[in-house]
Amino acid sequence: MKNFWFKFFHLSISEWRGIFLLAILIFFISLLPYTLKNHYKPTALNFDDLDSISILLQNNRILALASRDSLFQTNYKTWGVNSINPFPFDPNTISANDFKKLGFTDKQTQTFINYRSKGATFKTKNDLLKLYFVDDDIFAVLAPYILLPDTITYSNVKTTKKTDKAKVQIELNAADSIDLIKIPGIGKYRAKKILELKNKLGGFIDYDQLKMIYGFNDSLIETLKPYLTINPYLIKKININNANIKEMAKHPYIGYNLAISIYNYKQNHGNYKSIEELKNLKSVNDSIYHLVLPYITVQ
């Protein structure tokens, strides 16, 4: 039994040395916290240093962004100028396809078309600078090819309009209200009255017929003549062989009584073979005959 316990606790010299060294190591490790506590004192946090670091980082970020933007702008300008293929064009009428051929992208072309579709017009070359993607460099390339004036002198524009208006000549029997109001001295009201009389007569054969409208005197008609022409072949005539009394009576030169006479004569003698047969009517003298002659037909 004694030998058993002796063998169980028996250690060699090297093993005892290891145990001794381990004990010394444990001892020094246990003293380490006390040693560090006495020799290490944490320094207070300096917020001024943090502010300096923050400012430095912010400045670096700003410089990086500025460098990126500068590079982007340089590339954009280089792309814009190098991509432009100028040819003569009017920005008010150029198609989307042709605008793209100038060198603009699909997005820029669509922006241009949308801008113009909202009612925008280009009056001078400089108006093209209103497009955000047209900078000074691109404009300098396009300017010689833009079919617009550099500037507009409004006094000259007014003079031109008056001159053009004076050159206008309207065919009175074919004119509508839009045509008539182009003539100096004829507004919407007078244009309306002219058209009403034209529809009643069937057309004009002479300028003096305008005197049938209230307010149209010799002086006014003389000022209108340079702007008017009359084509008597455009007159709408009444076929007295087919028209009834009511239709003929609407004409200012015929009226109800003459319409009855014309109709009764046809009923008694058959259709008119010529307009001259009207002279057989007691109510038709030479004056009335020549007055209605341009407005009736038997065919």
Rank of each mutant, 00 (worst) to 15 (best):
G18T: 03
L71M: 10
L128H: 01
Y145F: 05
L142Q: 02
Q267F: 15
D208L: 06
L71F: 15
A64F: 03
P149R: 10
T124L: 09
P88E: 02
K193G: 04
D90K: 08
F27G: 08
I53T: 02
I186M: 02
T35K: 15
N173H: 07
N59L: 11
T159L: 13
T223L: 04
L224A: 08
L172C: 05
Y207W: 05
N46P: 03
G18V: 00
A166M: 15
S283F: 10
L180R: 01
L172Q: 10
D135S: 13
M248A: 09
F87W: 00
K101F: 01
P294W: 04
T297A: 00
I62W: 03
T153E: 13
N264I: 03
M212F: 15
F8E: 08
Y265L: 01
I138T: 06
I181P: 01
L21S: 06
Y295Q: 03
I84N: 09
T43G: 15
I205F: 10
L32S: 13
I275A: 00
A96R: 07
K279P: 03
M212G: 05
Y76P: 03
N3D: 15
N268D: 11
N268G: 15
L32P: 14
H10I: 09
Q73G: 14
P184H: 02
A243M: 11
Y154G: 00
G215A: 05
I245S: 08
A23Q: 12
K250R: 12
V157A: 05
I19A: 08
N92Y: 05
E15I: 00
K107V: 15
K266M: 02
G80P: 11
T121C: 06
Q108K: 06
N217R: 05
A120S: 13
N92F: 15
N244R: 06
N92W: 07
S14G: 00
I181G: 04
D137N: 15
R61Y: 10
D218I: 06
I245P: 12
F27A: 07
D51F: 12
P88I: 01
D137V: 11
F72R: 10
R61Q: 11
I19C: 07
G187N: 07
F99D: 13
N244W: 10
K193H: 09
P86R: 00
K77S: 13
P226S: 04
H290S: 10
A96Q: 11
V134D: 10
N75C: 11
L102K: 02
F89W: 08
K246C: 07
N199V: 07
Y154H: 02
N85R: 12
V284E: 01
Y154F: 09
D208Q: 03
S177Y: 12
L281K: 06
I245Q: 04
L220F: 03
V141I: 06
R61T: 11
K158L: 13
F27R: 04
K167C: 13
P294K: 03
Y227H: 13
Q209W: 03
